[in-house]
Each structure stands twice: as structure tokens, then as C-alpha cells.
Amino acid sequence: MTPSNGPADLTVADLDIGYLAGDPILRGLTLDVAPGEVLAVVGPNGAGKTTLFRTLLGVLPPLAGEATISGLSPAAYRATHGVGYLAEDTVMPSGWSCDGILALAVAAVGPGADTDAACELAGVDYPTSRLAEKLSKGMRRRLGLAVALVGRPGLLFLDEPEAGLDPGQRIRLRGKVEELAATSTVLVASHDLGELAVMADRVLLIGNGGARLVQPPPDGFTREFLEETFLDPHGGSS
């Protein structure tokens, strides 16, 4: 698969995110993500992983601060280049076959869409004439990933991509993320810390309204490390 945009770079400065003004879920996030980097976002439920992705996708305005993707606002980047987004809960419109959903994705992408390569990369190896709503959760997520990859995005958000996948598929997914990093910058939120420790270049730990950037621990995410991190996400050096 040839990238249409090239991997994007991401710059975040003093970003406050959330749904209610004056009540941010995450405050003062400052971050630079290099092109082609795989950044894991780790935190407890409700820490703001999905909210961060929605803000960086440009569908949720930040409460304060600024984020730019290759020099553009997130909404402007999405509108001009497109991004790949695998949502935590891949909702498919009812009544549509997988073929139909892929056809709609191609219409949304415009010229340059490539469903065959996207399906191969996402592991869509089942008949696409099936109704999307009848698929198992894992199959639906693979279809969602194919839809995200149809436009050959330079920036890819994966929100808990391993959810619903069996162990074999999880291992394959790890390989796919490494493959995707050749053409895209990848932000991946997950609770599967073992997988993240292997695939990520850096880890953004978020919780208690704050964030901290760390290198993946060489001996994996130990219980002590996580307890220390989630109790005091501001602690240590960024």
C-alpha cells in the first residue's frame, strides 16, 4: 500500500480536553509526535483516551491550547488529507453489507481509494457480501480498520484495536501496526499493555487529569510501575 500523504507529524501544546468548559478531563497536554512514530496512549477507563482522539480528529473542539497536524488544525488536516480512525465501538449503519460499507468509504475518500489493499492489511478475509451488523465483534473491527485504511491515511488513530480479537488476531494486529508505521503515524489506545510494550515507540500515560510520556519499559509494564504511574501520572520526567 502506497501512502497518499506520507506520515504526519503531530504537535500538541498546553491542550485541555473535555466536554464541558471549565471541567477538562485532561489538562495541559504538551506533546510532539514524529512522522512514522507509534505512540501508545495508556490510562484507566475515563482517563480521556477516546476524548483525546476525538479532539485530535477535529470533531471535538479543545477547551484550551492547540494541536496541529503537519501544520494544520486537526479539522483542517482531516478535511484535506483524511485520517484513519478505528473507534472503540465500531458502529456500522444497519442494513448495509460489508461491500456496501466499503463502497461508501470509497465514495467518502474519492480518487485514490484502495479497498483491496485495505482489506488485506486489515485482515478482512471473510465474504464481504455479508451484512455488517451480523458480523462478530472481531470481524466488525477488522472491517472498521479496513474502512479506516481505504484512504491510505498519514495519521491513524486506533482506539482499543485488540478488543474482540482472538489471540491469533492480536498477534497479527501487532505485525500490522508495525507495517502501518512505515506509511502512517499511529496513535493507539489500549489496555493490552503487553502488546503496547512491544509495538510502541513511546507511551503516553494519562490519568487523574494529567499525562506523562515514557519509553516502553524494557521489562514490560510491571504492577509497581503502573501503580506508581496511575496514582501519580505527573510524577517522574516527561
Binding site: L57, V59, R78, A79, T80, H81, G82, V83, G84, Y85, A87, D89, V91, M92, P93, G95, I101, L104, A105, A107, A108, V109, G110, G144, V147, A148, V150, G151, P153
Partner: peptide, 29 residues
């Protein structure tokens, strides 16, 4: 069907909104 409003509220709109094509043109098609 619930072409626009239903997809916005269910989150399915993000299947299309992530792509660079114009969303109004996409729904118009």
C-alpha cells in the same frame, strides 16, 4: 432511513468523516 441524524448520534458518521472527501457531497451522493 436514518441517513444523517442516525449516523451522527450512533457514531457511524466517523466511518465517513475521517476521510478527506466533502461530507455534504458524500451524503448528497
Amino acid at each position: 432511513g436514518r441517513l444523517v441524524a442516525g449516523e451522527r448520534t450512533s457514531g457511524a458518521v466517523m466511518l465517513w468523516a475521517q476521510h478527506p472527501g466533502s461530507l455534504p457531497v458524500f451524503y448528497a451522493k
